[in-house]
Structures are given as C-alpha cells and as structure tokens.
Design a protein around this nucleic acid. Structure first.
Lengths: 214, 214
DNA sequence: CGCGAACCATACAGGTATGTATTGATCCAT
DNA sequence: ATGGATCAATACATACCTGTATGGTTCGCG
C-alpha cells in the first residue's frame, strides 16, 4: 500500500474539513441532483474513504441539512434586498437583471438544484415556496411603488420572476451580444413601457464588463 | 397462502398488461420523479411480484423508454397545433391558456416530470430542448403573424411560455375565480395590448365550465 | 379435454448504498 | 518525546434494487 493517496488532487490539504465535504456535495447537487449526492461518490471524488465522512457528519441527512443551510445563507433574501434599494423603474428592473447575471451575489444553479430537490420533498417544498412568494411580493411591491395597479403589479411580478426561473430551469445559454439585444424587448414585455435609452446603455456596458472579466 | 391477492385493487383484472405497468409507472414518475420509478415499488403497488414485470419488459430501461414514448404521444406537438389554428391575437393567446388548463389535451404534470428527468440526463435533455424550442418558435411565429417585430415576437413568446413553465414547476394552485381575475393582466403583460372584452368573457365562461365539470 | 401460451411466484446472484466499530496515522501542545 | 485530539482506513452488518433462471398457475382454443 502506498502512503500518498493517488486520486486526491495534489495541492490540496491532505486532511479535510467539514466544509470541504459540503463544497464537494454542492457541486454534485448542482450537476447531478440530490439523489446523486452520495457519501460513496463524494469520498471517491475527494480521494478518501467513507470513514472520513462519518467523522465530520453524523449521517447523510446531516450533510443534506448543511446543504440547505448553505442555500439559505447564499440565496435567501438577496433578490428582495436588491430591488428594495432602487429608485427608478428602470433601475429596479435592471437591478433584477444584474442579480440574475452576477453570480457572486446569487447562485442560480444552486437555486435550481434546491428547487428540483424540493419538488419531490414535501417539507422542503414549503420552505422554497415561502422564498418564492417573498421574491414575487418584493417585485410586486416595487411595481406598486411605481404606480401600477395591485393586480397588474402582482401579475407583472410573477411574469418577470417566473420567466427568469425558467431561464435557469432550461439552462438557457446564449451569447452576451444576444442577451443585450433582447434587453429592450424584455423590458417592454415586463413593464409595458419603453426602456430609458441611457439606462439601457449603462446596463449593456455592465453586462459586457461582467462577461469580459469571466 | 391465499389465492386472491390482498393488496391488488378489487375490480381490476387479475392479470396485468404492459400498459398497466406503464400507467402505474407514469403515476409514480409524476408524483415522485424518475429515480423513484423502481420495479420493486411498482410491483408492490400493483400487488404482484417483480416476476411479472420481467415478463412484460426486458429491463427498467425498457420501461423508461416506454414512458418517454407516452410523453411524446401525449404532449408533443399539441401546443404548436393549438396556436396554429387560431386567427385573431386574442384567440391565439386564449387558445394557449386553454391548452394549459384543459388537461385532456396536454398533461402538464407529465411534462414537468419529464423535464425534471431531462435536467440530469444528457441525452434526454436535447429531446426536451428541441420540443421547447419548437413551442417557442410556434408562439413567436404567431406574434409575427400579428405584426410584432421579430425580436419582440421572440421575446414575448419566451416570456409567455417560460411563465407557464414555472406555473407548473412551482405547482401554482389558485381558485378559478382568482385565475379569471388575472386574465386581463396576463394578456396585457404578454401582448402589450388590452384584451378584447368579449373574448375575455368567452374565455372566463370556458374556464368556469371546465372547472365545474371537474 | 388437453396443450401451449400468457402470466406470475420463488429463489438466487451480484452490485451498491448507508452506518457502526475499531484500529491506524498524523499533528500539536505540554 | 509523548499523549491527547484530529482525521482516515478497514472491516463488518444491513438493507435495497436489479436481473436471471426456473417452476407453477391460469386462460383460451382446437
């Protein structure tokens, strides 16, 4: 038996922490779904045996709970906060676009994975549904603040949020140039008004900047 | 050992057909997801042993293929056809609403389950994506026929289809009265125009009728 | 009536997952 | 350096699930 493990990545600490397991589990969750988050494959990926896992966690359930906690910490509330801080209609809508594009503040893939998980897990479903309702309510309030009637505000909030959810659910990938060319049409459909030319230009620049640094 | 099986539903044929297995599998697929579609639990639900299954199907893969075939037969194309047969803008949009409400022509829960399945299955994903693209293209063409510019038509098609997808993904349940009260706002958001009062009344009546007979 | 096909039960093999218990190695502080 | 704490390997028990092989029923038809 060799002493140095062979499969483990070279420049990683030889001993693992609980967070290492969580990180690896998050990757698996996003790429393959909850059911694929198995201790056996995580251990294989990390280059250790399952003996290590059971030192850091009591059970698989405990790991899954940790994943949910991570989702709560990363994604809960950010959208609500983002739109609350805006003044003009254009700024608000574009702030939403920014949240959905800038993945440092909000992790859409994780959101999607949690949503997939929740669909067939009764207890979790209620939690996710509460977050969804909160997001729609925040957008709805935003529209109301800008003079939209209650029902129209609510429906427009749903339309904009639901559209975005499907964007992630279908994993739509398109060149940044296309996305920018769609900006005005999206804004029109979402708000019923034409986008301010200057605000559009500002946002396009932001998109390109974020795209370049990636 | 008793001769009459106890768990099997009473007034069902004592011998099963392949379709019986498919039907039971579809239920399970919709309620619990693909990974839950297991021969063992299906046999338990049907009140037989797994020996029966392997007479009707070669393997679990064969059953899953049959489920996909069922999806293709039920859901593929119906949306495209529904909107192609309409004349006015109002009729087209309302025809879409009708498809999404009248579950005899289109099975949204099955659509959702297949989409969940496809998200983590590479080969299937392409199939579903092609269907999604076809649906969006059909709606986009519809908007173009009614004078919308290409980009706006495409984005509006996406918005209306994506919104509806999330409706199913989040399993939104709301009283028919609420749904009717949202009709005008949805129409406005989707098309950018006010709904024709008479068309709205017609559609509301349809909704109520469908709701009552259920 | 009898025979073959359709349908199902039983039993076995193989694979893989979670947990537990125990031992082994490494690191750090006294 | 040594002894306790931290992390990991090994071995074992248990539980499922798939698939095969084979034998037993039941049904329909000549």
């Amino acid at each position: 038996m060799t002493l140095q493990s062979s499969t483990r990545t070279p420049d990683r600490q030889p001993r693992l922490t609980g967070d290492d397991w969580i990180e690896a589990a998050l990757e698996l969750l996003v790429s393959d779904g909850v059911d694929a988050v198995q201790i056996t494959v995580l251990a294989r990926n990390l280059g250790v045996t399952r003996g290590s896992f059971y030192w850091h966690f009591d059970s698989r359930e405990a790991l899954l709970d940790a994943l949910l906690a991570e989702w709560r910490a990363r994604n809960t509330g950010v959208m609500v906060e983002a739109i609350a801080e805006t003044r003009t209609l254009d700024d608000g809508i574009l702030a939403l676009f920014a949240v959905w594009t800038d993945h440092t503040r909000f992790d859409p893939q994780l959101d999607q994975a949690i949503r997939d998980w929740a669909r067939y897990a009764d207890d979790l479903r209620k939690t996710v549904q509460a977050e969804d309702d909160a997001r729609v309510a925040a957008i709805s309030d935003f529209f109301k603040r800008h003079g939209y009637a209650p029902t129209e505000a609510f429906i427009r909030a749903r339309v904009i949020y639901f559209t975005q959810l499907s964007y992630y659910a279908l994993n739509v990938q398109e060149p940044m140039a296309d996305r920018i060319s769609y900006l005005a049409a999206y804004f029109l459909s979402f708000t019923g008004r034409e986008i301010d030319a200057e605000a559009a230009a500002r946002q396009s620049a932001k998109f390109l900047e974020g795209d370049a640094q990636k």
